[in-house]
Amino acid sequence: MENNFMIATQEVLENIYDFNEAEVRFHILDPLIRKLGYHNGNEVYLKLEEKLRYPYYYIGRKNPKKDLPIGFPDYRAGLKGARGSFIVEAKAANVDISVQDVEQAHSYAAHAEVGANYFVLSNGLETLVFQTLSGPNHAPIIHLKISELDDRFHELENVLNPINLARLCKVNYDLKLKLGDGLRSAVEIRSGEYQMAAWDYRIYVDGLDFTAQLKPNFSKLDEQLETLRRNFELRVGEGNLFRDADGRIKAFIKFTGATKNNEESMKLIGLDRMGFSTTEQFLSHDPDGPTVFESSNEYMIAKGTKIPPMFGAALPIDLDVNIDVYVKTRMYLEGNQIKGDYLALSAYSMQIPGTRQLRLEVDLSGTANLRLMV
């Protein structure tokens, strides 16, 4: 059951400036930890004033009779039988949180007997969350004032509640071959674009080239392709690069259309997402020797299907259309981007009444740029 109770009640806000450390713990931190979902149960644990026997940097044999404990973190909470924990240190409201306080809390979190992923400091007026591995000199990842503690409580939940803590602290080791220098064996594509630089097309009837004779009848196609070249770009919504089970590098990319209608058309014929592959072992860093990716697909659009044009209302097509698409890209790594150029060849075949076969071949070429999440 979700905890929706308020921590910073009117009574707390009126009296907090006089809270000592025990009162900060009772009025602020105890309810905060309960609201995050920590109690003694089957999946989580909560420990109070846990005695730490030795400094976290202690090296050598320890003597329990001579070596004094380092201290007592106020709270330690975490997941039973899984990676993920944090400690919480309380201070009185009339004491500003100092650099020394951060260092002390970090020493508890980094202690060999604790190994907490995060540490929290609060004097009631301010609550700060730090990532342990970043060290004591790094800025907090969350900083909440008492007046915004409840309104922004979701920020604490996004990091520290049991479900999110388990997700954030889960470790998967990548043991596969890297994609290229500076990359793991898999990486997300967060955005990108394919910009069109040139276009051309050919018209065949029964296998014979009738481009010169029929081109005047395709003036609308000329206008739309030129509009695309001058004004639009094919945007990449998301994707990923990875090695498959055989160790080959593959890419899957989801596109978004240059216009709303264009995007609907792409989804209709299955061109809103494409898969690419390469035979090369690693991604190139050399613009003069790029990695070549290829993709090929076949589609069929049935007679009567409404195809949205780039602009205007969707209209049904009069014939069955078979579509073959081949895309070749030449890409290279530069920082967190993959850059290069592409050539897209598509063929649209249809049977004209009277047993004549019409085939329209369209060539598009331009530049490509993909931004990686590294």
Rank of each mutant, 00 (worst) to 15 (best):
S346K: 09
V159E: 05
S219H: 11
E264A: 05
D206L: 06
I301H: 03
K51F: 12
E23T: 12
K66Y: 13
D341S: 14
K267G: 08
G270L: 07
N231I: 03
E280N: 05
D320A: 07
D320M: 10
L271F: 10
T291N: 01
S296G: 04
N137P: 03
L208N: 13
V374Q: 11
E155Y: 05
A251D: 00
Q281L: 10
D174I: 02
A82F: 10
E193L: 04
K220W: 15
G78I: 05
V205T: 12
K91Y: 04
N15Q: 12
G275P: 02
F119W: 05
T355F: 11
P309T: 06
A197Q: 15
T9P: 03
A90M: 00
Q281G: 02
Y332T: 04
Y348D: 02
R190C: 09
A116C: 06
A313M: 14
S122D: 00
L333R: 11
Y58P: 06
A212V: 14
R273Q: 14
Q351A: 14
V327T: 10
I97T: 05
I70A: 09
L48G: 03
A186Q: 13
L52Q: 03
N40Y: 15
L128W: 07
E2I: 13
V374A: 12
R190A: 05
I352C: 03
T259Y: 08
L133R: 13
N231G: 03
P73A: 04
V102L: 03
Y299H: 15
R61E: 09
N40D: 15
I307W: 11
D324L: 10
Q10R: 13
L32P: 04
H285R: 08
H138V: 08
E263P: 02
S296Y: 04
L214E: 08
I70S: 14
G115Y: 06
K267H: 09
P162N: 00
D288N: 13
S107I: 03
V12A: 00
D320V: 11
